[in-house]
Simulated assay, not measured.
Amino acid sequence: MSWMDDGGFEIKTFARNGVTMARMSFRTSTGNFDVILSKTEVQRVRRECNRILKEMEADK
């Protein structure tokens, strides 16, 4: 099972002052790391992930 399957990574939404935000959490053996993201930042992460996936597919 991977660290993602074990709950080591998750993204959840929450509301702050009426604005929906996302919390990206990483849990490692040394502790937790949380990043708060706006909708625009989530879209940027998505674009970067898609770009990397395309590169990985091209390397096959």
Score class of each variant (00 low, 15 high):
A22Q: 14
R27C: 06
C49F: 07
R16G: 01
I36F: 00
E55K: 03
K12R: 05
G8N: 06
D34P: 03
T30Y: 14
D59F: 10
N17T: 13
T30E: 02
I11L: 15
I11W: 13
G7S: 13
N32S: 08
G8P: 04
T30F: 05
V35A: 12
R27K: 15
A22E: 09
M56Q: 11
R44L: 10
M56E: 15
M1G: 05
D59E: 13
T40P: 03
A15K: 15
Q43A: 12
C49M: 10
M4L: 06
K12C: 06
I11F: 08
K60R: 15
D5F: 00
T30H: 11
M1N: 10
S2L: 00
F9A: 07
E57I: 09
D59N: 12
S2K: 00
E57D: 12
M1A: 07
D34F: 09
G31T: 13
E48H: 09
M21C: 00
G18P: 03
K39P: 07
N50Q: 12
S25Y: 01
S2G: 02
E57W: 04
T28F: 10
F14I: 04
R23V: 15
K12T: 12
V19W: 07
A22I: 03
T13W: 04
S25N: 01
I36L: 04
N50A: 07
F33Y: 13
A22P: 01
D5N: 02
V19S: 11
F26L: 05
D5M: 02
V42L: 01
K54S: 15
M21V: 10
E41Y: 00
T20K: 01
M4F: 05
R47M: 05
A58K: 12
E41V: 08
Q43V: 15
S38G: 07
D6H: 01
A15Q: 12
F26K: 03
M1W: 03
L37V: 03
E10K: 07
A15E: 10
E57L: 04
F14Y: 11
M1I: 02
V19H: 01
T13V: 14
R47Y: 02
N17I: 03
V35R: 05
S38P: 01
D6W: 06
L37G: 00
A15G: 13
M56I: 11
I11T: 13
G31A: 03
T28A: 10
G7E: 09
K39G: 02
K12E: 02
K60L: 14
I52W: 13
R23E: 04
A15P: 04
V19R: 14
A15L: 10
T20I: 07
F14A: 07
E10T: 08
F26Y: 11
G18D: 08
M4N: 09
D59C: 06
E48S: 05
T28R: 14
E55L: 12
R27D: 02
T40R: 00
C49L: 05
R16N: 12
G8V: 14
S38D: 14
K54E: 11
Q43G: 04
D59W: 14
R51I: 00
T20W: 10
I52T: 13
T28N: 15
T40D: 15
V45G: 09
V42G: 10
K12A: 03
F33R: 11
K39A: 12
L53F: 09
T20S: 05
S25A: 07
F14L: 08
